[in-house]
């Protein structure tokens, strides 16, 4: 860990100006990812700007029937929020599937979105990694890649995004509110994270200095939603694959749905092809399988993670089965 200066942000605009004007500056929120990376020498800032004191710690209703979640709202508070539990169960479940109770008490909404990959080569500065050290090569492609991408990867990077929450947010059509040097703008969560292409060092489309101030949830398509995470321990483990699904079920048919997959790509993977198959369909094992197969047709697994295709199919089918057979809508 190299020495750094620490400053507490007084106001949002000042924080943005400070970080945007200093190439070596980073924001500090919950710290659960940044402090980890400081110790590993993966992050080497010379200035840390603490944004936890900024007034982004509320969950508030929006005029359109949706919800605005402040960027510094802690994961545990968001998961326990009564409106989130009632109307956005997929979000509450995704948050609770992530990390541990202690980490959820620290981690923030904005920080969770911006957490970086768990690829072990990214975290180990003695190995090559294009994300950490552009141009050095990817150690995972011919190395240990059990947890890595099966969709949307590139010859330069096969890492996956580790957030559970972000997968749910994509399935909820959420947008992030970003304050930058040139003012505020909204970005759909689905467009926030990038596929790696030839710039795996860039996880998102944000510019240096951009500050996430809130996440906006539109009124939910349906309160019938669920998050299913498949992992190698029963808890406190990153996803092998995960599924976030929201389904509007009426008259025995899937009127509309939103599906996103986690653990399969460099970003939360919006499953448009699966949605297209499901839309207007009559729920059945065959329909679910067709939907999953449509989405996974383009999967390009690595030598040691081919199982993820079958696992993602199984997880998606199981999630849809549960979602369409349980209680009332």
């Amino acid at each position: 860990m190299i020495p750094f200066d620490y400053r507490r942000a007084e106001n949002p605009a000042g924080a943005v100006a400070t970080v945007a004007g200093a190439p070596g500056a980073v924001y500090l929120a919950g710290g659960t990812n940044l402090v980890d990376h400081l110790k590993l020498d993966v992050a080497r800032p010379d200035l840390v700007v603490d944004v936890t004191g900024l007034p982004f710690d509320r969950v508030e209703p929006r005029a359109d029937g949706g919800l605005r979640v402040g960027a510094t709202v802690r994961n545990s508070d968001l998961a326990a929020h009564p409106v989130v539990r009632e109307r956005y169960p997929v979000l509450s479940q995704a948050l609770l599937a992530g990390a541990s109770g202690q980490l959820r008490n620290m981690a923030t909404t904005g920080g969770n979105l911006l957490q970086r990959t768990r690829c072990p080569y990214f975290q180990d500065v003695t190995t090559a990694c294009n994300k950490r050290d552009p141009g050095s090569g990817c150690s995972a492609i011919e190395g240990y890649h059990r947890y890595h991408a099966i969709l949307g990867a590139s010859p330069d990077c096969v890492a996956v995004h580790p957030s559970d929450m972000a997968v749910a947010l994509v399935a909820l059509d959420a947008t992030v509110r970003v304050l930058g040097r040139h003012g505020e703008r909204d970005i759909p969560v689905d467009a926030l994270h990038r596929l790696p292409g030839d710039r795996p060092d860039r996880d998102t489309i944000l510019e240096h200095g951009d500050l996430i101030t809130a996440v906006d949830l539109p009124a939910p398509l349906s309160v019938r939603s669920a998050y299913r995470k498949v992992r190698e321990r029963s808890s406190f483990a990153f996803a092998l694959v995960s599924v976030a699904a929201v389904a509007d079920l009426r008259d025995g048919r899937v009127q509309d749905c939103r599906i996103a997959l986690g653990g399969v790509a460099h970003k939360p993977w919006r499953a448009h092809a699966a949605e297209d198959v499901l839309r207007a369909g009559e729920p059945s094992e065959q329909l679910f399988t067709r939907a999953a197969d449509a989405e996974l047709a383009g999967a390009k697994p690595l030598p040691d993670n081919g199982f993820k295709v079958a696992m993602a199919r199984g997880a998606l089918v199981a999630t849809l089965r549960g979602l369409t057979t349980e209680g009332t809508a």
């Binding site: 620490y6 507490r8 500090l28 919950g30 710290g31 659960t32 402090v35 980890d36 110790k39 590993l40 840390v48 603490d50 936890t52 545990s76 541990s100 109770g101 202690q102 980490l103 008490n105 620290m106």
Partner: peptide, 27 residues
Amino acid sequence: CDHGQCGSCTVLLDGRRVLSCLALAVA
């Protein structure tokens, strides 16, 4: 573990359980 992966460093910080290994003291 010093990286938020084991829980041995858990304390109550302002009343909530957190991992003290991932909290910067200065903050």
